[in-house]
């Protein structure tokens, strides 16, 4: 299942991004700042999640012109978001030759029952997940990278932590489950049995597992890396802060040296104000982005 050349290449790029920071950008200037700060990739989107939250309206794939400018400006990989289920946006992004497509709950879903058949694309996909079952459903559809959903645009790390802990806990539970219990888990998680059996044997996801949704400080990045994330996505956390250049570089440093308290302290010095943020516990259920996707 994971042995086709095409899937190995998709996962292969995700492997190269490990230990790095992928930064949301809305234009070429921000992309340049991200690259200079040490980002391993940038994510092109029309508005950062905090603005989508504030302004409302339908959030779609970014403008082609903006994405082209970003791709011409930086030498690192460029990812871009498509709406959940919107395979035509994905076709456009593949034709544009973006390096990774994020089928993202941050944008307004285009289909309330179906995700994109990602095996049908040559471009690799990353998808969000809140738990192991969701991660495995996305992988079965062809995702070559998983990221925790967290709660995008909130600046509140609690949901990213919840989702990363859930996935790690469920992975550990599977490794000690008996054959009949594994079948039961597959049923409960609504994930393909073959995939669940593979995970039970290996004790890990078959694709890299990154963290996203609420990372706003170097310490947040260190926290999710320590919980098992293999790289981090930062959305609104950089360009909604007071000093994006410094904060971007500091989060890169904290991701590399996530287990070193001295380096982490250095990364946290003199950063200016973080993004204001929203307490997720006080958000109405209907305001959550993480519940999009099925």
């Amino acid at each position: 299942m994971f042995l086709t050349d095409e899937f190995r290449l998709k996962v292969g790029l995700a492997e190269q991004l490990k230990g790095g920071v992928i930064m949301d950008v809305t234009d070429a200037r921000q992309a340049q700042i991200a690259q200079q700060a040490g980002a391993v990739a940038v994510m092109a989107l029309e508005r950062v999640p905090a603005d989508i939250r504030k302004e409302g309206g339908v959030a779609r794939m970014a403008s082609i012109q903006k994405m082209r400018q970003i791709m011409e400006t930086v030498s690192i990989p460029v990812m871009a978001k498509a709406r959940i289920g919107h395979f035509a946006e994905a076709m456009v992004l593949q034709a544009l030759k973006v390096d990774y497509i994020d089928e993202s709950e941050v944008l307004t879903p285009a289909d309330e029952a179906h995700h994109i058949d990602k095996h049908a694309f040559k471009a690799p996909f990353v998808c969000g997940a809140r738990n192991l079952g969701e991660a495995l459903r996305r992988i079965a559809e062809g995702a070559a990278m998983i990221r925790t959903k967290g709660e995008a645009g909130s600046g509140d790390i609690v949901e990213a932590v919840r989702h990363m802990r859930a996935i790690q806990r469920q992975l550990r539970q599977l490794t000690v489950a008996s054959r009949d219990e594994i079948a039961g888990h597959a049923k409960d998680m609504q994930a393909p049995l073959e995939l669940v059996q593979w995970v039970a044997k290996e004790g890990r996801l078959p694709v890299p597992n990154f963290s996203a949704g609420g990372i706003a400080t170097p310490a947040d990045a260190s926290l999710v890396m320590s919980l098992g994330a293999e790289a981090v996505f930062v959305g609104s956390g950089i360009f909604k802060s007071e000093d994006p250049e410094r904060r971007a570089a500091a989060i890169v440093k904290a991701t590399t040296f996530f287990s070193d308290p001295e380096k982490l302290l250095e990364a946290c010095e003199d950063l200016g104000k973080p993004m204001p943020g929203l307490d997720v516990a006080k958000l109405d259920e209907s305001e959550l982005l993480q519940t999009r996707g099925w």
Partner: peptide
């Protein structure tokens, strides 16, 4: 290793 050379250079 493989990775992003710009990121590695900066660090």
């Amino acid at each position: 290793p493989g990775g992003e050379s710009t990121t590695n250079l900066i660090l």
